[in-house]
Design a protein around this nucleic acid. Structure first.
Length: 936
DNA sequence: TGATTCACG
DNA sequence: GACGTACGTGAATCAG
């Protein structure tokens, strides 16, 4: 068949995704015996492909065949309509890791495997079908998906492989009431709840078909909509014309998809027995292996009963068992050697990557070298920027010899690091991804051992590589300090001799790879695969983007405020010294305590563990309330001191000289609950509560012509509490948009809403927050500055009115005691190892356990929103810049602010779906302005 | 380096 | 019955 595709040829196009989902749902959740990898869908898929091949060998056998898959969820349809397929359930956690294996399986059967980023399988199918028909061939689409039925006719038919039933023009007419050429018109009117195509409200397939039959086609129908007799129907069509036309665009397949493979590439080929049987053996499909071997007339390879190593004799027994040996590490100095490593990584489909740099600020440091590991114990280091010698005053030292030019090495590595078929494994990949992004490399896909540990072990221990290696591999890696030294004489990594760097850097890649091999299968067993794959890993590129973009901070504004603060502080300081009758360091709690409680002998002096008087704000406030001026002045001074040192001064040092912006760094594993932490600088604690402090936000500005847009969840934690504790009264109040604190107050103190006073409301508000934190009489008493007995009375009353709260608290603590962890609505686990402790820790652990599911669920929700945000605002002139726990800040071209706000709000308010539908609405408030103070 | 203080949600 | 206590963070500062 060298003439290529033409008359007499018969093309089969298999809807691969449909096969996978059918296989997944039809089979029990099988796992691979040797390592627990879920494998059921792959098994079913292979069975279906094998059966398909066997069933299609006769005289009408296809000459060309391809399996077509969906790739990614972004398509031109989501651009047209961001909600397209937004109702889809997320892919089950057990299925996700099997997706790449179905591609491998297809290739193992020697069948063309087609997928294309940003295009749905259906569009690719439409395009091949058109091409085949144009060349005079016939087409069979192996699928029963109604969305493909518009392609039937003119030499194209469908085949339902399960029922072994062909679908031709007649069958399509039976289903849609119109011919294939008008199917899209009917779909546009009827909509589709599965794909979330809106259509015309109240019109189903029956009515739609009738209308199209009557008017011929959709365009005529819409143009002549006034003629429709039924008033409701007429109005619907006129009112929703735009929506119907959009729906038609969504359901119409694009037969002009750009293709990488020609029809000729799809020619049927016999499978290579060794490859196919090898794959099936690797999957450990015993029965299928034998069946396929019989069909091929080949001998099935042996499948060992016990050891997974038998399948791959080169593989070590366990990652931990192999000793660490720096002799196994290679220094790569030439392109040829690097190409060998790249080839090995490609062959293996995964590689651990680590970058070495001159510091920790990803936006400023220089790349010094890269290490790779493809098998435990085998790693290399590619030195790129090591320097030696002194260097003169104006420049850095000369590059050391024996290093590849950085450009050359990166050009070779780029295809590997961006190869969608090769998993790049890192420890804290966000760091490496940002470094590489600055060199034009978009690393993907990624796995991250730090995030795997976080998903499995949050609350148990830290997730640094050194900690993980020691704990799980029994190996303490070379400490960085041994290379760089510490303190004043500390050097940067580029000054480390290459020979030393090889041992350190290659070991890091080696450790990372071993940790990934250990952790990956454990994720399934710990039931946190979904958490890792939907809440941790996808956040990495989103945060990297936000951090690299940064937010503009106006130095002059900060500088002016700093000067003003300094003046006020000096005045206060003089006054304080005057009141004290002597000069002392106002910033020293020790000296202040001695002045207050020894020299002035004020009452209330309490010494802490260290023997120093406590001089916290609460203590000083009490003293000030008694009429003492000195503590009042100190409070003012402290506020200014804080604002000046932490904000107006320190923030200026964080302005990147190249970008003029401040680039924070989010620590994904920073808080046990799932919240992010912001560091260097912390942009999650910029003042807002005091008037004076809030003005610091005026220094956070939008670029010329743009605005800052802030969207924040209203009362998200209380809403989650209402949901998880099942408090009907609270749910009701949220549904009706009531003032929740006032409603609580009314309920507790029997005050009608109309007669609510700010003081009563304030108390209820404190109680509401107290509940989220695991309330205690003591804590509430201190917060409200009321007697403990009175506070306890409030709490008792609260529990009486909302009995579900107590049940929730008791149930949560009992769960923690039984399991050693608590979890969020999305399955995030937070370990509570102290829950069974005796003594005061028990109280802490108890309250933390009560708070964690609430705070953690809120954290999960905003994570989900952030992960979906780039797609939702794609094409709009907007960038997501910051996250402050329940708030997202964007920088937007002024004209597009409303648009972006609408899209972003929709994403945030629906962020729990489809995994979790809360019983209460999520409400998002928005604001915009030239700076953060104005936007909030 | 640890304790204290205070900024945020 | 006493014991201490609101939940989660990061940064600056003092003192040893």
């Amino acid at each position: 068949m060298t003439e290529g595709f033409g008359t007499g040829c018969h093309l089969h196009l298999i809807d691969g995704s449909a096969f996978i989902f059918r296989a997944f749902h039809a089979l029990p959740p099988l796992t691979r015996k040797s390592d627990g990898l879920p494998i059921g869908a792959v098994a079913g898929f292979c069975n279906m492909i094998h059966k398909y091949v066997q069933d299609n060998r006769g005289p009408d056998a296809p000459t060309h065949v391809a399996v077509i898959f969906d790739k990614g969820s972004h398509t031109f349809r989501t651009d047209l309509y961001p909600d397209y397929k937004a109702n889809r359930d997320e892919m089950p956690a057990d299925l996700r890791p099997q997706i790449p294996l179905t591609r491998e399986a297809t290739r193992a059967f020697n069948i063309a495997c087609i997928e294309k980023e940003n295009y749905e399988a259906d569009d690719i199918i439409a395009t091949y079908a058109r091409l085949a028909v144009e060349k005079g061939g016939r087409v069979t689409i192996v699928s029963s998906d109604k969305d493909l039925m518009q392609l039937v006719g003119n030499g194209v038919e469908m085949l339902d492989a399960m029922k072994n039933k062909r679908i031709g023009v007649e069958e399509v007419e039976a289903k849609f009431g119109v011919g294939p050429d008008r199917v899209v018109d009917v779909q546009a009117l009827a909509g589709d709840s599965v794909d979330n195509v809106p259509g015309a409200p109240g019109i189903g397939i029956k009515t739609a078909a009738q209308l199209i039959q009557d008017y011929g086609d959709l365009e005529t129908l819409l143009d002549r909509a006034e003629e429709i007799k039924q008033p409701k129907r007429r109005q619907t069509l006129i009112e929703h014309r735009a929506q119907i036309e959009l729906s038609k665009k969504l359901v119409t397949l694009d037969a002009e998809t750009p293709l990488d493979e020609t029809l000729d590439d799809l020619e049927v080929k016999d499978p290579d027995a060794e490859t196919l049987l090898g794959f099936l053996a690797q999957m450990e499909f015993r029965t299928l292996l034998k069946r396929v071997a019989d069909a091929l007339g080949a001998e099935p390879p042996a499948l060992s009963e016990t050891s997974p190593a038998a399948a791959d004799p080169a593989a070590p027994e366990t990652p931990a068992a192999l000793p660490f040996d720096p002799e196994g590490y290679e220094c790569v100095r030439h392109a040829a050697a690097l190409e060998v490593w790249i080839g090995r990584a490609q062959g293996r489909g995964r590689v651990a990557v680590d970058t070495e740099t001159t510091g920790l600020d990803e936006m400023r440091v220089d790349l010094v070298g890269i290490s790779l590991s493809v098998e435990p114990g085998q790693a290399c280091y590619i030195p790129l920027g090591h320097r030696e010698g002194e260097g003169d005053l104006f420049g850095s030292a000369a590059l050391a010899g024996g290093q590849m030019p950085m450009d050359e090495a990166l050009a070779l590595l780029k295809p590997l690091l961006e190869d969608p078929a090769v998993m790049k494994i890192g420890q804290n990949m966000k760091y490496d991804a940002k470094i590489l992004a600055r060199h034009g490399i978009a690393v993907a896909p990624i796995d991250d051992t730090m995030l795997m540990s976080y998903a499995m072990h949050a609350g148990l221990h830290g997730h640094s590589m050194d900690a993980l290696s020691e704990r799980y591999l029994g190996h303490a890696p070379i400490p960085i300090k041994s290379l760089l030294g510490s303190g004043k004489s500390q050097i940067t990594f580029d000054k480390v001799p290459v020979a030393e760097a090889v041992k350190y850097a290659a070991e890091d890649a080696d450790v990372t790879l071993r940790l990934a091999e250990l952790f990956k299968p454990q994720l399934h067993r710990a039931k946190v695969t979904t958490v890792y794959e939907t809440l941790e890993r996808p956040l990495v590129p989103v945060l990297a983007e936000m951090e690299m973009h940064g937010i503009k901070v106006d130095r002059d504004t900060l500088s002016r405020m700093s000067n003003a603060f300094a003046q006020k502080m000096a005045a206060l300081e003089a006054e304080i010294h005057d009141l004290a009758g002597e000069s002392f360091n106002v910033g020293s709690p020790k000296q202040l305590g001695e002045i207050l409680f020894d020299k002035m002998s004020l009452a209330g002096g309490k010494k802490g563990k260290t023997g120093a008087y406590a001089t916290g704000a609460d203590v000083l406030e009490d003293l000030a309330a008694e009429g003492h001026d000195l503590p009042a002045r100190v409070l003012d001074w402290r506020q200014l001191s804080k604002l000046k040192s932490t904000y107006t001064d320190a923030l200026q040092d964080h302005i990147n000289p190249e970008t003029g912006r401040v680039h924070t760094s989010y620590v994904i594993t920073g808080a046990v609950t799932g919240r992010l932490a912001s560091t260097d600088p912390n942009l999650q604690n910029i003042p807002v509560r005091s008037e004076e402090g809030r003005r610091i936000r005026e220094a956070f500005v939008a670029e010329e012509g743009k605005v800052l847009l802030s969207l924040d969840y209203s009362q998200i934690e209380l809403r989650i509490l209402a949901h998880v504790a099942g408090i009907d009264a609270l749910k009701e109040a949220f549904r009706e948009g009531q003032d929740i604190h006032a409603m609580t107050a009314s309920e507790m103190f029997d005050v009608p809403m109309a007669e609510m006073t700010p003081e009563i409301r304030r108390r209820a508000k404190a109680i509401n927050f107290g509940v989220i934190y695991g309330i205690s009489g003591f804590g509430l008493a201190r917060n409200l500055r009321i007697p403990r007995s009175e506070a306890q009375g409030f709490i008792d009353r609260y529990f009486e009115r909302f009995p579900g709260i107590r049940d929730y608290m008791d149930a949560t603590v009992a769960f923690a005691k039984e399991h050693g962890y608590v979890q969020t609505l999305f399955g995030r686990r937070i370990h509570t190892p102290e829950i069974g402790a005796k003594g005061p820790q028990a109280g802490f652990a108890r309250r933390a356990a009560i708070n964690a599911p609430i705070q953690g669920t809120a954290a999960d929700i905003i994570r989900r929103a952030m992960i979906r945000m780039p797609a939702a605002i794609e094409g709009l002139p907007a960038k997501m810049l910051l996250q402050v726990h329940d708030e997202l800040i964007f920088e937007v071209e002024a004209g597009a602010a409303e648009d972006v706000a609408d899209r972003a709000r929709a994403v945030m308010e629906r962020a729990g779906l489809p995994a979790v539908a809360l019983d209460v609405p999520l409400v998002v408030d928005a604001g915009q302005g030239p700076n953060w103070a104005a936007a909030h």
